[in-house]
């Protein structure tokens, strides 16, 4: 089974719209399973008009808990905490649960064993049946939790299992923005990456950064420039950056507000209006991807 991960460096450049349309188009030629690993803001289900049923909880986060009856307020825990998550208030250690990484350094130095480390819920993973005939696996991080990488890994684990059950040829993963932990977890063991970018100075800078991450993991990648006609000059610049990074130029998608209309109807643009300019460009992109996967 192949695994195509859609990433971008910068957020809001069209990853989810493009991933949803690609999943619909490719599912007509291949057996497809889709996954959404943007666990901070999982939106693929919305664009596909699908409802996710919870299947499992992810409980990988750990937090420090202070037993106030044992705490002497010595402040050693405050000193060792690298994440600024413990303070002293009224002579007792207070853990900021939203900032605590659960590393346990505080519990090691506490002279009165007043601090223990407990497991808490990190997020949830669920599955949806889409009206397009393929399954979607989606997860979300509990608001304010830290270990998004763990939820991403759980989404990918369940998605691969569902894909195997379905006998899928392709898993399409709609990744998170950025280049940090959840992106790295999304790219793990992928066979191909699709990078979405837009033609602005910020787009170019963030493209350079995501390519460094992709190349570090030695994953072959393709570039798609969204809203390319906003700046043909920057589009050319993006394509030069991708080429220099060893990537393939796959497609240019024009500015097209049909995508927003389709989104309001909770449909991928290729299903809402196949004759729209953006749909035609995405259809070409799907053909190129199909060729590369085989």
């Amino acid at each position: 089974m192949k695994e195509l991960v859609v990433v971008s460096g910068k957020g809001g450049v069209g990853k989810t719209s493009i991933a949803a349309s690609l999943a619909v188009l490719l599912s007509r030629k291949l057996k497809v399973t889709a996954a959404d690993t943007d666990v901070d803001a999982p939106n693929l289900a919305i664009v596909l008009g699908a409802d996710v049923r919870r299947e499992l909880d992810v409980r990988s986060s750990e937090k420090a808990v202070v037993d106030v009856s044992k705490c002497t307020g010595c402040g050693k825990c405050v000193e060792v905490c690298k994440f600024s998550s413990i303070t002293l208030a009224e002579g007792k250690a207070v853990v900021d649960r939203l900032a605590c990484e659960g590393c346990g350094a505080c519990s090691i130095v506490c002279p009165t064993n007043a601090i223990s480390i407990v497991q808490v819920k990190t997020g949830e993973v669920g599955v949806a049946d889409t009206e397009y005939g393929f399954k979607l696996v989606s997860g979300h991080l509990e608001i304010g939790e830290a270990n998004s990488g763990h939820v991403v890994t759980a989404v990918k684990w369940l998605a691969r299992r569902k894909a195997e059950e379905e006998g899928a040829d392709l898993l399409i993963v709609d990744g998170p923005p950025g280049i940090g932990c959840p992106v790295i977890a999304s790219l793990a063991a992928a066979s191909h990456a699709l990078v979405v970018s837009e033609p602005t100075p910020a787009g170019a800078w963030n493209l350079t950064r995501i390519i460094q991450v992709i190349n570090h993991f030695k994953i072959p990648f393709m570039l798609v420039v969204n809203k390319w006609n906003l700046s043909p000059q920057y589009t050319t610049a993006l394509e030069a950056i991708a080429k220099q990074g060893g990537g393939e130029l796959a497609a240019r998608i024009p500015v097209d507000y049909t995508i927003a209309e389709a989104m309001a109807m909770r449909k991928p643009v290729v299903a809402y209006k196949p004759e729209a300019e953006s749909s035609k460009a995405i259809a070409k992109l799907a053909d190129i991807i199909l060729e590369r996967l085989s």
């Binding site: 901070d40 939203l98 991080l141 998004s148 923005p177 950025g178």
Partner: peptide, 14 residues
Amino acid sequence: TAPGTHCNVIHAIR
């Protein structure tokens, strides 16, 4: 802030 609702966003908003 960064996009999302994770700990980096919290550090920036708090």
